[in-house]
Structures are given as C-alpha cells and as structure tokens.
Design a binder for these strands. Structure first.
Lengths: 215, 215
DNA sequence: TTATGCCAATACACTAGTGTATGGTGACTG
DNA sequence: CAGTCACCATACACTAGTGTATTGGCATAA
C-alpha cells in the first residue's frame, strides 16, 4: 500500500535535526495505535520526540489543530490507497484479490494501519470531522468496489449489494480479529470465505444478491 | 433483549434515596456511550448523580474497580442475551431471525447497546480484562450461531464457516453504520443480504461454504 | 434514647495536562 | 558581522482529575 506512511524525511537544516509537522503527526500515529485518540497528548508527544512542548506550539496552533491535521492526512492517504488498487484487467481472481487487498491490507503488515482506522472510527462517534472523514472514505471505497465488480460480471445487478456486503464483512473481520490475540489462521479463513462470495456471484453470471427470485 | 438493562431499582431506605453500585455503573454506561471508556471520570460521574466524589470511593475502591465491575457486568449480560435467543424450533426463517436479533439487536432500540459494545471492543485493544471479556462473548455467540445453523441444515458441513461469516458481517455492519448519520435503510438492506446468506445456504441443503468443489 | 453502621460531604495533597509569554540559539542573509 | 528568522527551552498560570482522611447526618436496631 502507500507506504511512504511514515513520511520519512525529517527535514534537516545544517547539522541539528529539526522537527516538521509530519514528524509530530507520525508520533501522534504511534499514540493513536497504542491507545486511541484520547491518548495523544502533547506532553507525551514531546517526550517521545525528545523536545519540549514549546516546539509543539510552534508547529501547531493547539491540540485541536493537531487532531484536525491528523484526520486530514489520514483521509488523503486512504483516498490515495484507492488509486493504488484501481487499475485492473477484469480477471475474476485479480479483481477479487485487488478488492480484498484494499479492504484488508497486505495481511500482516497492516495491523498498525487497521488499528489506526479503528481508532478513527471510534473517534468519529464523538467528533464531526472524524465522522466526515470516515463517511467519505467509506463511500469512496464502496463505490470503487462496485465498479470493479461490474468489470467481471455479465449481469451487474447485485454489484451494489455485494459491494456493501463485502465492505461490512471485511470491516467486521478487522474489528473482531484486531485484538491482542489475533488468530491469523482465522483471518485467512474469513478472507477465503469473503473472496468466495465474489467467485460464487461471478460463477452464476452476476445478478441479484437476493437470489433469482428476489423480492 | 434483556432490558432490565438500566437496572432500574434505586434502592431506597427511609426517605432519602441512596446510590447503589449499579447506579454508578448505569451512569458510567452513559459516559461510555457518549465518549468511550476514557470518558468515564469519577468527577463527571458524581456530578451527574448529584453527589460528591466521596460517595464514589465508598462504593468502589478506585477508578479501576469501577471499570472492572463494568466489564464484568457487561460480560454477564451479553452471556444472558445468548440464553434469551437460544430456544428454537428449527424453522429456517425463525432461526435466521433469531440469529440476527442476537447479533444486530431489535434494530432501532439497540443503538445505545451497540455503542457500548463498540466502546468495549475499542477498550479491549489496550486492556486485558476487556479483551478477555470480548473474546469470551465472541466465542460464545459464534458457537451458539453454529448450533442454531446445524438445526436447519441437512448437511451442516459449512455451519462453522457460515457462523463466522455471519458474525463478522453483522459486527461490521454495526461498526460502519453506527455513526452520527446512521442510514437506517442501508442497515435494513444489509440485514436482508446477510439473512439471505443463510437462506441460500439452507436452500442448497447446507454443505461447504466454499462451493461444492471446495479447495 | 443511644449506639451503630451506611452513605455522603468536605478538605487536602498530589499529578497530569493545556496554553501563553518570553527568552535563547544556531543558521542563513545581506 | 549584524540582523533576522526558524525552531526550541523555560517558566508561569490555570484547569481537571485521582485518591485519602476526616467529619457529618440519617435510620434502624438494641
């Protein structure tokens, strides 16, 4: 995935290394991973970066400013992920694989990213900005999956439904399986089951997701 | 569902009403719903109950004690929910309905309960007790669903897989749809789609969830 | 009525956290 | 080489939060 994630370049000037806004956001990511949004405190942040709080208030107006920037960056990067998994040739297995890679990540390396996403979702239940970001990302991903599904189907009637179902299933897998005792085998199994939904749908030539005699 | 949830009875003694442990836990539930576990503070709690913090430290040893009790109570009640939706006659639609009612709630009235559960899940990512509680509840629910599925199938081979799939799908639905702008129509649609998975599986007489020519 | 026990109020000490104002320092610029 | 700017340190004021120790009030039981 777009793994200039830890945006790496700590701008140097002369000999001393100085911090950039992104450095602070990267550090904030750590705290979010460990304890959610309520865990990102400027004091802890400063300690980890080996500087004082004075530095923080130069880069950011206040605590809220940090969170806003964090959410904005998160939103942009998740949107960029979409482009990354977009281009396809229409083969069933590659398309399915592409969809699942977008939603579930590269399986293994993406645990941190998923913890961040779950934290954002949690924060979205009490913060408007976060809620907007999540809503935008959700919609974009679902729409993209839908168009990818349409590429492999003769009858794309149920593409919208299947896209939605895939989305909640994968997100649910992340939610349930992203614990301290993550069962990797079970994750694999779920991935198989979900992928199979696409294959089955394709094998019956697409069509409605509520059966041939749907409502 | 078991809606002695707000365990109602505020024990009275003489004329003045006094608080019980459960009263504090109920108030804590409110704070959890509003802002997650990091939002439950004894000061806020006391303010809401119209008493001072001195009262709190009579009922609870400390802040941690409150959280532990909260988690324990949550665990017990979710386990009790299982019994509530257990008894069945084996009809496809009633069993399906029963499963979905357990996992999704009575649809509408259960938004608060779901917010609590998501908060617990979030807390479980940094707290061992919470993680244990969630794991126990998850496993119990999945197992129960499996046995219910076995009641309606001629060939119950894929019951375990389907149970798992149902679980992550419903949980994902809660996760994605439990926002500030909850789209009730979409929730209904997802519920239909998930229910249909069971029906389809039943109509083909049960069997593997990976197709007839599985792996 | 007196005593006892349950529950709550009050006062205190302590820590953590935010935000602000001001000063310091090194690097590049003319 | 003086000045300026970017970045950080320090010190201060303030609020919020936990936990403890002590006291107070009200009911029921003896």
């Amino acid at each position: 995935m777009t793994d200039a994630e830890s945006s790496g370049s700590r701008r140097r000037r002369g000999d001393r290394d100085q911090l950039t806004r992104d450095d602070w956001l990267d550090a904030a990511t750590e705290l979010v991973v460990e304890g959610g949004f309520d865990n990102v405190r400027v004091l802890t942040l400063a300690r980890r970066l080996g500087v004082s709080r004075g530095s923080f208030y130069w880069h950011f107006r206040d605590h809220q400013d940090l969170l806003s920037s964090f959410l904005q960056r998160w939103r942009e990067r998740r949107m960029a992920d979409l482009d990354y998994w977009k281009s396809g040739d229409g083969d069933v297995h590659t398309e399915t694989r592409r969809i699942l890679r977008l939603l579930l990540g590269d399986s293994g390396r993406s645990v941190r990213r998923m913890r961040v996403e779950l934290a954002v979702r949690d924060f979205a239940r009490r913060d408007r900005d976060a809620a907007d970001a999540v809503a935008a990302v959700d919609e974009a991903r679902i729409r993209q999956n839908e168009t990818q599904l349409l590429r492999i189907a003769d009858n794309g009637e149920g593409a919208q439904d299947l896209s939605l179902l895939l989305y909640v299933a994968t997100m649910g897998a992340q939610l349930v399986m992203t614990g301290p005792d993550r069962d990797e085998a079970k994750v694999e199994r779920i991935e198989q089951l979900i992928a199979n939904l696409v294959v089955q749908w394709h094998e019956r030539g697409g069509g409605s997701m509520l059966g041939p005699d749907a409502e």
